[in-house]
């Protein structure tokens, strides 16, 4: 029982990281329906920025997180400006061209980091003393509490932002009908840029937190994390903020429960098997709106 509880805690912490990355993913997708493949690399750059700040300027936890968020915001905007916006403007560009451009950006960014840093995995220096709390036989660490707490906070904040601010309303309008929103006076380019900025900032925060939690930062860390986050976003219903969190938590829990059930050989298949099963039953994801296509 204690072991089961412990695995639940492990699963929740891992799921929170997936959820954190999935939040940014789902936002960008919700607005412009673009699978932003470079998102995982922005997350990776966030982790490296945090690492850099801690190593060279002896930054504390908050400085590292905010510094990384600031840097990835700029990076996200640059990627949007260079790799995506020209395609959005072009009459002939289909969504697949944008996808390939995103893949190009992803290859570019991860190779750039290999050149800057080398391919080795680097550990994160200890920023604060870790402590274990024992709850009903399962021990939960300060790191895990931090991860779960930050994810919850960001999810609520983001949901409130999208629901109640003017910018948030404009974003939602844009996601429903870009042309109509533009006609109503929504500056679509600005809104998309803001979406990218917020999404990238979230990825930056996620990168630093994941770096601290896993104690490992590596140039190719974005790929698998990005894929899992994508799966989480789709599982929860892409475009839905609570959905991303639910999807992330479910995938994290499923992986850890798979390990607990002595099926760790098949761990990487779980996330996707669950995803496919859910999609077959409810193609729009758990919390997604289903869109009926009309003639």
């Amino acid at each position: 029982m204690a072991q089961f509880l412990q695995q639940m805690v492990n699963g929740l912490a891992l799921g929170s990281i997936y959820a954190l990355i999935a939040l940014g993913y789902t936002m960008v997708y919700g607005i412009i329906a673009l699978i932003n493949f470079a998102y995982g690399e922005i997350y990776m750059f966030g982790a490296f920025t945090g690492l850099f700040l801690v190593l060279t300027w002896k930054a504390n936890l908050y400085l590292a997180i905010f510094g990384a968020m600031a840097f990835t915001t700029v990076l996200g905007l640059v990627v949007e400006r260079v790799a995506y916006r020209p395609l959005r403007r072009s009459r002939n560009a289909g969504r697949l061209s944008a996808l390939i451009s995103a893949i190009g950006a992803s290859i570019f960014l991860s190779t750039l980091m290999v050149l800057l840093h080398g391919p080795a995995t680097t550990g994160f220096p200890t920023l604060f003393q870790n402590r274990n709390f024992v709850l009903g036989g399962a021990s939960i660490s300060l790191y895990q509490i931090l991860i779960i707490g930050v994810s919850a906070l960001l999810m609520v904040g983001l949901d409130l932002f999208v629901r109640y601010t003017k910018t948030g309303r404009a974003m939602r309008a844009l996601s429903q009908d870009a042309d109509a929103a533009a006609l109503m006076g929504v500056n679509t380019d600005l809104m998309i840029a803001i979406t990218f900025a917020i999404g990238s900032a979230l990825a930056g925060a996620a990168g630093v937190l994941a770096g601290i939690y896993f104690n490992a930062v590596q140039p190719y860390m974005g790929l698998m994390a990005g894929l899992k986050a994508f799966a989480a976003a789709v599982l929860g219903g892409i475009g839905s903020i609570p959905g991303a969190v639910v999807g992330g938590l479910l995938i994290g829990l499923a992986e850890i429960m798979g390990v607990a059930a002595k099926l760790s050989d098949w761990k990487d298949a779980f996330a996707f098997a669950i995803l496919i099963l859910v999609l077959l039953v409810k193609p729009s994801g758990l919390l997604g709106r289903s869109i009926i296509k009309k003639v």
Binding site: L87, A93, G94, S101, G104, I107, F108, T111
Partner: peptide
């Protein structure tokens, strides 16, 4: 290689 993919998609999106 990555940059080429981006550039080609921008100039020849189809």
């Amino acid at each position: 290689y990555g940059a080429t993919l981006i550039v080609l998609m921008i100039f020849r999106p189809g």
